[in-house]
């Protein structure tokens, strides 16, 4: 890799717009994700978080603007090349079909195995290591519809890890989980970040974002209205405008306090 490519953001959106039926879902969004960062993508429902993630990974093509992966235009890369660099975990992990956990995780090797080649011992080892990493080895033979939402989420994180890409994009990974499973999941993400993964996760829980991410990007009405250290974004005025709440950080008890915007705290 050239020096400039190494120095370039692993993922960048440059003035990206995405419109559906004349309505702007993303409105001149610019964003850089640097290697090793852990970024929370915040925003109220319908703010464009999922569309931004899907655009960043090439599922949606921007109406205008560009997406760069390590300095290279995304449209110049094949799907398999993108998959080797970025793993995307959609919000929906439900399936009707009785796919086993092991088979679902092994699907992460698709960009390496392709259509014709049989999985090698290194592919099988990558699958085993990914399952071990999120503690789902005992579930290997279970079928996906029999798992809880938390277990399923861990299976799909293992699938993303088996893909072997250095960047993880996650869409609301904690949304369907109870508090215990939420904590478990963000601890896994924190460990993956410590191991060198670059993470961008759409998160709707401001507390989780504040506790576990270094940087936050706030999307409101398709526009980025705040971007910076998570502490500044969470307690800033843009949050009040986006969510209709004011946030006060209680450092002593490591807690966030919320009040309706316009009322005293």
């Amino acid at each position: 890799m050239s020096t400039s490519a190494a120095a370039a953001p692993v993922l960048a959106a440059l003035d990206v717009c995405y419109e559906v039926g004349g309505r702007a879902i993303l409105d001149h969004v610019s964003l850089e994700l640097r290697r090793g960062e852990s970024v929370a993508l915040l925003g109220p429902n319908g703010s464009g978080k999922t569309t931004l993630l899907r655009t960043l990974v090439g599922i949606r093509r921007p109406t205008s603007g560009r997406i760069l992966q390590a300095g290279r235009p995304l449209e110049s890369l094949t799907r398999l090349e993108i998959a080797c660099e970025i793993s995307y975990l959609p919000q929906n992990t439900w399936t009707e079909f009785d796919i086993t956990v092991q088979d679902a995780v092994a699907m992460g090797r698709y960009p390496h195995v392709g259509w014709m080649r049989a999985p090698s011992s290194s592919d099988r080892e990558a699958v085993r290591a990914s399952m071990a990493s999120v503690g789902i080895e005992p579930l290997a033979k279970r079928r996906l519809p029999t798992l809880s939402a938390g277990e399923r989420q861990r299976v799909f994180i293992a699938r993303a890890l088996a893909q072997g890409s250095p960047t993880l994009l996650l869409d609301e990974p904690t949304s369907a989980l109870d508090i215990g499973h939420q904590m478990e999941l963000v601890e896994i993400l924190a460990r993956l970040h410590a191991e060198g993964k670059t993470i961008l996760a759409a998160v709707h829980d401001l507390r989780l974002a504040w506790q576990h991410f270094g940087r936050a990007v706030l999307l409101d009405g398709g526009k980025i209205t705040a971007d910076g250290p998570v502490r500044d974004v969470v307690s800033g005025p843009a949050i009040a405008s986006a969510f209709g709440v004011r946030v006060r950080i209680d450092d002593e008890h490591r807690a966030l306090h919320f009040s309706r915007a316009g009322t005293e705290m």
């Binding site: 899907r54 990974v57 090439g58 599922i59 094949t78 799907r79 398999l80 993108i82 998959a83 080797c84 970025i86 793993s87 995307y88 975990l89 959609p90 929906n92 399936t95 079909f97 796919i99 679902a104 699907m107 992460g108 698709y110 960009p111 799909f156 699938r159 993303a160 893909q163």
Partner: peptide, 11 residues
């Protein structure tokens, strides 16, 4: 079978 977005994601 996992869904279109999952399929996109793995290439």
């Amino acid at each position: 079978a996992l869904g279109d977005d999952h399929a996109w994601s793995v290439g």
